[in-house]
């Protein structure tokens, strides 16, 4: 199994193959429990317990103040049947396109184009391309809110090009708010995808490309015969990370649009907060949180299998 993971995907620790006859790694030791215990206690109290507590709360109708009433799976059926909430899942799907599909496709095609050269200064390019990943999302959101604003750089550029008629407050526009937020995601994630693919493509043996050329393969065949198979793992990692980023974008939505205008940019991650602190539907908020967790789990387990064709 691939290490499932939301934030990063550290080196999977392949099982070390012990030489035959060697003793098992580390003799059985009771002291091991003492080493694990402190971490386990904090982890259980502040991560596992809230998760279970959230799953429990999701079975109640509760306003956070008075006594809750049992709802069974009522909050879950509401999450999928209420048109407003269904809409938020639709928005999440649109954002997955902007955060994951678009950046991965663009980055993949571009890296495929450059697959045969080994550019110099790659470290510098990597550092710059990856930069959006380390900037606090809060700062990114504040910055883009200005960039998209009435008199921000985007409208300024449009006016300069004589396209002033297109200028608008992008984040306040019913049609454009969601794609505008989505493009912030595209901007943030495209570098991640490029860095991943660049690292992958450097490892494809050059001989494969040379062999393909000797066989008279054109650029297209070379892409499908050499580049695509060589980058499958990177593609699956990039898709997993970016899809999860698209689902966990509370910061960006809260700070750029607050779900508006109307509910044009409401997403599940935002509703978790909104339903708890604004409308007093705590059980429903917990149910949405659990749904997000389940989707994240499914994406982590599923994308790798689909893209890499693993069992």
């Amino acid at each position: 199994m691939k290490p499932p993971d939301t934030r990063t995907r550290p080196a999977a620790d392949r099982t070390r193959h012990r030489p035959a006859g060697a003793p098992p790694p580390g003799e059985p030791r009771r002291v091991a429990y003492l080493y694990v215990l402190p971490a386990l206690l904090v982890y259980a109290a502040f991560l596992l317990w809230p998760l279970l507590h959230g799953a429990y709360l999701s079975l109640f109708r509760w306003d956070g103040l008075t006594v809750g009433t049992w709802a069974g799976l009522g909050n879950y059926t509401q999450a999928f049947s209420d048109p407003h909430l269904r809409g938020t899942f639709g928005h999440a799907a649109v954002l997955v396109f902007f955060y994951a599909v678009l950046p991965c496709c663009i980055a993949f095609l571009l890296v495929a184009v450059m697959s045969r050269s080994r550019p110099r200064g790659l470290t510098l390019f990597r550092t710059v391309l990856f930069l959006p990943q380390v900037v606090a999302m809060v700062a990114v959101a504040v910055a883009w809110q200005w960039i998209y604003s009435e008199h921000g750089p985007i409208n300024g550029t449009l006016r300069l090009l004589g396209l002033g008629g297109l200028a608008r407050g992008w984040l306040g526009d019913f049609t454009w708010a969601l794609p505008s937020v989505g493009l912030i995601g595209t901007w943030a994630e495209i570098g991640l995808a490029m860095v991943l693919f660049l690292a992958g493509v450097q490892k494809i043996p050059r001989e494969l490309y040379e062999a393909a050329r000797v066989d008279g393969a054109g650029a297209v065949r070379e892409f499908f015969a050499v580049t695509l198979p060589g980058l499958r793992r990177e593609l699956s990692v990039a898709l997993t990370l970016t899809i999860i980023a698209a689902l966990r974008n509370f910061d960006l939505i809260y700070l750029t649009t607050g779900g508006g205008p109307g509910d044009a940019t409401r997403v599940p991650a935002y509703e978790v907060y909104n339903r708890t602190f604004n409308t007093g539907e705590v059980g429903l908020a917990c149910a949405i949180g659990i749904i997000i967790a389940v989707v994240v789990f499914a994406v982590t387990a599923g994308v790798g299998r689909l893209v890499e064709g693993r069992p």
Binding site: R7, L47, P268, C286, I292, A293
Partner: peptide, 16 residues
Amino acid sequence: GLMVPTEAIVVPLYFD
């Protein structure tokens, strides 16, 4: 725990 998004725990955590 790596797969648990903050969104899934933040509300119960607040009450706890």
